[in-house]
Computed example of a mutant assay.
Amino acid sequence: MRDLVKHNIVLFSSLTGEFSHDPFVSEHWLVFIVSGFSEVFSPEGVISHPPGTLGLVRKNQLVKTVKKADGEKPFKSISICIDYQTLKRFSDQYDVKADGVYLGEPNIAIENDAFMKAYFNSLMPYFSQPEKLTPILAQIKTTEIIEILLQKPAMKNFLFDFSEPHKIDLEAYMNRYFSYNVPITQFAQLTGRSISSFKRDFTKIFNATPEKWLQKRRLEMAYFLIAQKDRKPSDVYLEVGFENLSHFSTAFKREFGVNASSIYAIYQ
């Protein structure tokens, strides 16, 4: 596995296994899949992205992604982090400002036109010679992709809306994203609250602390997947938000009085 991080540019290549990452996206990312494919999990289902996919992922959201090789072809991708500091410098230098709050989709498919193809082709040689991608070149290439994206009018608000997440419906959000394994502080940020107001609002709505409610909700989903969908415990614990199988098994036994493997055996 090779994960070459050159400041804002990540060149990833791997031939073996499946790889996932922290579901919390704190900055904008432009991702191009060179080979292999990725699967993006959401409450609506799983979407598979083949080679050639080019997408822009907005900051401050939760995204579950698994990267997979395709037989003898490695999973290979080029990801550009379009971070706040870079955008702020660009905004100040070139007087580019958002016209208003961005209200569009958080994840956008970008047309891989001639300009995008030329841009990503210019980065391909660095897979074999990463030392030549110097910090100055990485910064220049990040600035270049911002300018290319700005040729599309909708991109200005997407990139340059620097407003903080607004306060949103906490109950709906948590019921949608409970299976994402992120700290309580990030759930607070994503719902537009301080940690204290998040805990206060949460307890008022769910009559439980966030930690207790999340564990119970995740275990209930796991029970459903094992008993009704014939899923093995080893296949579901990550999906419902547990970090390791041992912790999941202990919590499951404590909650339901029976091992998860026993539930799986009963319904076979």
Rank of each mutant, 00 (worst) to 15 (best):
R176Y: 09
M221L: 14
S20F: 03
E27H: 10
F127Q: 04
I78Y: 05
S77E: 12
G257L: 03
V31F: 03
K64P: 05
F90Y: 15
M1F: 14
D161T: 02
I145G: 01
V10W: 13
N207F: 08
Q151S: 13
L15N: 12
P135D: 10
K229S: 12
E27T: 04
E211T: 14
F242H: 03
V31G: 01
F206E: 10
A154I: 13
Q61I: 10
N157Q: 05
D161Q: 01
M1R: 09
N8L: 02
Y94C: 07
K229Y: 12
K59R: 13
I108H: 05
G100R: 13
I205D: 10
R2G: 11
H21P: 04
F158L: 07
V10S: 14
V10C: 05
L30K: 07
Y102V: 03
N244W: 02
M116L: 12
A208C: 04
T65G: 08
A154P: 00
G45D: 09
K253V: 03
V10P: 01
Q93A: 07
G55N: 08
L170W: 00
R218H: 00
P23I: 13
A109Y: 01
G100F: 06
K199R: 15
D3A: 11
M221R: 14
P125A: 07
G257R: 01
L87V: 09
Y84T: 08
Y264G: 07
P210I: 07
G241P: 03
N259P: 04
A114M: 12
F41H: 10
S197H: 11
L54Y: 10
Q228P: 06
E243G: 00
M174R: 08
K156N: 04
I263T: 08
K216H: 03
N259A: 14
I82K: 07
D83T: 01
T134A: 10
F248Q: 00
S262I: 15
F252R: 04
Q129I: 14
K88S: 10
I33D: 06
Q139G: 14
Y119H: 04
F242C: 04
K88E: 15
I226G: 01
I205H: 01
